[in-house]
């Protein structure tokens, strides 16, 4: 029986271990090794930190790096601000069929690929798009307006793409808040603002943090939305990585960039957990 249990455990763990090992640990080790080698001649390499020095020495790389971080944080904050009331409505106010259909509505955009979703925004925002035409028809503008290819369009796209990943954990945590606790807050003289601040938000904190982590990581690592909706000046760090690997065929520098992105996202998530007093285990359960 014990031996059988052990076998079952091994069989259960094998796919997980294979997945972690083959797809996460081994590629990362390899990428790290690639990132710390420098080409000194044809087929000749030596270990050095030259790629990282290149990254630190080039303002364009650093600016893009910082921009990507700040914009991702901004997209996360905006997603939270828009997603929280939506999640509260779904979890606490909507009942029965309305509740499930609203939840479904959040899911519907994900039935099509991200590419198609982004094209949807392009149809709306481009010079000959719906909004531009509507504004002209209303007489608010004289000629066609280009709403695409700027930071605002990019942020809109990022928020839209990540909304579901914020709403789902928020709905789950808010649903676990007993209605009578909110009522008790009112009964004891609390206003809507104070109840939201002192009762609802502290209760939803694990959901807020886990939603924010997911949305932040998705935004930071997003390639498609910044490329399609952002303009020439809206460089995203993933685009730099892409160009190093694919266009310049400089795998060494690309790998170093990849590692910088990993360090950045880990640092910001660590900071977020510290600031909110949450632990990773608590937010992921």
């Amino acid at each position: 029986m014990r031996a059988g249990n052990k076998l079952a455990l091994i069989l259960l763990l094998t796919p997980l271990l294979l997945w972690i090992g083959l797809l996460i640990i081994i590629p990362h080790i390899d990428m790290f090794l690639v990132s710390i080698r420098e080409r000194v001649g044809v087929g000749k390499y030596q270990i050095s930190l030259a790629n990282y020095w290149t990254f630190l020495g080039e303002p364009l790389y650093l600016v893009t790096f910082a921009r990507t971080a700040i914009m991702s944080v901004l997209a996360t904050v905006l997603t939270l601000i828009i997603g929280f009331p939506v999640a509260f409505f779904i979890a606490k106010i909507a009942k029965g069929r309305l509740q499930s259909s609203l939840f479904l509505l959040c899911l519907v955009p994900f039935w099509v690929s991200e590419l198609v979703r982004t094209f949807g925004w392009m149809i709306l925002l481009r010079e000959t798009g719906l909004i531009s035409n509507l504004l002209q028809w209303l007489g608010l503008v004289d000629g066609p307006v280009e709403l695409l290819y700027n930071d605002v369009a990019m942020i809109v796209g990022l928020v839209y793409t990540s909304m579901l990943f914020m709403v789902v954990p928020l709905v789950t945590t808010l649903e676990s808040l007993d209605d009578s606790i909110i009522e008790a807050g009112y009964d004891l003289g609390g206003s809507t603002v104070s109840i939201t601040r002192e009762i609802i938000i502290p209760h939803a904190m694990p959901g807020i943090v886990s939603g924010s982590i997911v949305v932040f990581m998705l935004s930071l690592g997003n390639y498609l939305t910044p490329t399609m909706l952002g303009g020439k000046d809206s460089l995203w760090f993933t685009e730099l990585i892409y160009s190093q690997f694919i266009v310049r065929f400089n795998w060494e520098l690309g790998a170093a960039f990849g590692f910088m992105l990993l360090i950045l996202s880990s640092a910001i998530i660590w900071l977020l957990l510290k600031l909110t007093g949450q632990t990773l285990e608590k937010t992921m359960t």
Binding site: D178, S180, I181, E183, A184, G185, Y186, D187, L188, G189, G190, S191, S194, E198, I199, P202, H203
Partner: peptide
């Protein structure tokens, strides 16, 4: 929240995100 009436709920509805003193002091803070 303005009525001079308070209620002890069936499942008490203490605020789990606060300690006991903050629970009791909630109404006074408000």
């Amino acid at each position: 929240n303005k009525r001079p009436v308070n209620m002890v709920f069936q499942h008490l509805a203490l605020f789990p995100m606060m300690n006991i003193a903050d629970n009791i002091g909630y109404g006074l803070r408000r």
